[in-house]
Design a protein around this nucleic acid. Structure first.
Lengths: 197, 197
DNA sequence: CTATTTCTAGACCGACTGGTCTAATGCTGT
DNA sequence: ACAGCATTAGACCAGTCGGTCTAGAAATAG
């Protein structure tokens, strides 16, 4: 199987879906940007747009999971604690946003939760992918010696800051809110320091 | 001018746009749900779908602003501090989410930031409406005797929790994350209590 | 009552959408 | 060389979209 075309479609689609949402992105937009003909899409994704969106969402979620692994492992090796890693993770998200100007943290909902009222396949996948982030964070928490509860609390808070910050940043058009999210996490460090995480 | 038809269109459209997004919502969906013919829509909104979306977004933002005013004033009258009001506000958002099952806090981005790459009219309105929330919160902060900076810090944090919590709740399909946002604000109370807000 | 305006009603239209289909093209092993 | 499969290429199609248009109902004015 020729992978470069397949991959190109997934990556291009992920970018467009994340930026504009599922419905607002036309198959032709994706094909134009990827510089590919229609035949290729329906050869690689017989299920069409939906199939492509599913793969794009999976790929996006995997990217986030990889970033979690990367940042949390790196920080741990450098002697930082769990909160340090969480701060670093937020900073990395800001960096990516700055660099690419479009990278969506909330890719799951943007891609999958925008179609019809009740697309079970989409909403179930969305749940599943979000759960995978949660698992990744708790796994990393355990590597830091944290209980599931501790890791969940701080990890969940980090997620809220990031999702919220990203969403607001998209509205305001700058990265102020996303940077604010980083500041919030830094403040967490002071509090949780006292908790002894 | 007959207002009931106009209002019905705005409210119905706001609901659908918030739930599904601008592009995923067809004019016919709105008309079907509102039980109105096409002619009425284009009579009241000559600019069509876009016009309607703008009014729907304004209306949604106004609802949020009213809720801010209501909750913060009420809490102040009852002798609560600014954080108490913020907690109460988060709780109210959860209540509304529970009750209506769809009320979107992030209505601005859902309605306005989903169309084409660069719709200036939409994105400028989005910024403007979001700014109006910020102003409302700072106004309320001043009524509580807080400096703009203090009100901004806690208000912004509250917004991130709510936006993030709402977004995640939409993915997971429950209100856990939104309730978690309330818990986060309650924790804030302890911290900021020490700051003396 | 009639005249006029306001609004509803929905048939209709062109543009565009996602999706299909077949012809052609490369690429493989023999 | 050939055959056979994998992939590209894009013309084409049916359905849906947002939007227009005219007919007439309902309300208001004289």
């Amino acid at each position: 199987m020729e992978h470069s075309t397949y991959k190109k479609l997934v990556v291009t689609a992920a970018g467009l879906f994340r930026k504009r949402g599922f419905s607002a992105t036309g198959v032709s937009d994706i094909l134009r940007q990827a510089n590919l003909p229609k035949g290729s899409l329906y050869y690689h994704f017989p299920g069409g747009k939906k199939d492509l969106a599913i793969e794009a969402a999976k790929w996006s979620a995997q990217q986030v999971n990889s970033l979690i692994d990367e940042v949390f492992s790196e920080t741990r090796e450098q002697g930082g604690d769990f909160i340090d890693a969480a701060i670093r993770f937020c900073e990395r998200v800001v960096e990516v946003y700055h660099a690419e100007g479009e990278w969506s943290f909330s890719s799951i909902s943007t891609i999958l939760l925008e179609g019809s009222d009740e697309d079970l396949e989409f909403s179930e996948l969305a749940r599943e992918l979000y759960a995978s982030h949660k698992v990744k964070i708790i796994e990393q928490g355990e590597a830091y010696g944290l209980s599931e509860e501790e890791a969940f609390w701080i990890g969940h808070k980090m997620m809220l800051f990031l999702e919220g910050g990203w969403l607001v940043s998209r509205v305001t058009g700058d990265t102020e809110s996303l940077c604010f999210a980083v500041d919030c996490m830094k403040e967490e460090k002071l509090i949780t320091g006292k908790r002894g995480f």
